[in-house]
């Protein structure tokens, strides 16, 4: 099938059936998904976790990834940071009338290869079409089920004074890559999204047992948002600006656009809080994996200034690291 999506592709008629059978389903047909049915089936013994996320990234294709890859890793990462092993996904597509079918193939291919990388299967899905002007080309929702890891209790409520905050990888790449692609910012350099599957890092850290307090996937709002979110549950945080891993290219581009790398979205950065005594081991675990080579300890949970994140700056000053507000837009002032 070639050409573009039309309203008929979403109407439930013959064309819609064709789209599902001939374009979408072939990417996912498997032992776990042997035929097209209204509900996918799977078995799970023991406690399970369920999560969902919708993906509306604009543009859908950007350097380092695309909406399909995001839709798989984003949802799997949400399961992984809760200590679960991701197993199965749903895939709901909302396509805008006029969306090129060739692009749909690209996205589906990405979904499938990301799913393979993450060791998960897409076992059911849905497709709708909206009129031109009512959707951003393609929107995706994925829901994911994962097997909970027995004995692993992860929660910000477990954070104690003295606990250490770790960041697994350089920050600020994803948001900049998407911003540059969306606004065709003439900064003439290819910034790549860091879109990645964090499960291996999370599974590795689970070895720490109760010394692992909680984990978060640092997405929208960057590490600043995650740190504020963790602080809001009771402890204060003190972090060192110098300690955050940042690629020189990202730092320079952020500088040029007047943005703070700590507030920029990521899709492959894990924030973990561990007991102080377990920091060295945790860093060893993270650095033992390609995605965590540049892991750093960036700060400490503290008992004062509860609910706030204090940043020690490069020059030795101190200020609050705020919850970022709203959209990421380049500045000239």
């Amino acid at each position: 099938m070639s050409g573009r999506i039309t309203l008929e592709h979403g109407s439930g008629g013959a064309l819609a059936r064709e789209l599902t059978e001939q374009v979408i389903y072939p990417y996912f047909q498997s032992q776990d998904y042997p035929e097209l049915v209204d509900a996918g089936s799977f078995s799970l013994a023991g406690p399970a976790l369920l999560t969902t996320d919708s993906y509306v990234v604009d543009p859908p294709f950007f350097p380092g990834g695309d909406i399909g890859r995001l839709a798989v890793f984003g949802t799997c990462n949400d399961l992984a940071v809760c200590g679960a092993v991701p197993l199965v996904l749903t895939l709901a597509l909302v396509l805008e009338e006029g969306f090129p079918i060739a692009d749909l193939h690209r996205v589906l291919h990405s979904v499938r290869s990301a799913a393979d990388e993450a060791g998960v299967r897409v076992i059911t899905g849905d497709t709708k079409v909206v009129p031109a002007g009512k959707g951003g080309g393609i929107y995706i929702n994925t829901a994911g089920v994962g097997r909970a890891t027995p004995g692993l209790e992860l929660s910000p409520a477990r954070i104690r004074a003295g606990d250490r905050v770790l960041v697994s990888a350089p920050v600020g790449s994803h948001g900049l890559a998407v911003l540059a692609a969306r606004e065709s910012l003439a900064i003439g350099t290819t910034l790549l999204s860091d879109c990645a599957n964090l499960h291996p890092l999370c599974a590795g850290l689970a070895e720490l047992g109760p010394a692992l307090r909680c984990m978060r996937d640092a997405t929208r709002g960057g590490v600043a948002a995650v740190l504020n979110e963790l602080a809001s549950t009771g402890m204060g945080m003190e972090v060192l600006e110098d300690a955050f891993p940042i690629r020189p290219l990202v730092a320079a581009a952020a500088n040029l656009l007047g943005l703070n790398p700590l507030e920029i979205a990521n899709e492959g950065v894990l924030v973990a809080v561990v007991a102080a005594g377990a920091e060295a081991q945790a860093l060893r675990i993270l650095r033992g994996h390609p995605l965590g080579r540049e892991a750093r300890g960036v700060g400490t949970a503290v008992a004062d200034r509860r609910g706030k994140v204090v940043l020690e700056t490069t020059i030795g000053g101190r200020r609050y690291l705020d919850m970022p507000r709203g959209l990421l837009l380049p500045r000239i002032c």
Partner: peptide
Amino acid sequence: TVSIRRAGLRSL
């Protein structure tokens, strides 16, 4: 104003 705040200068 932004640079002063980013550097945490007031605290120094």
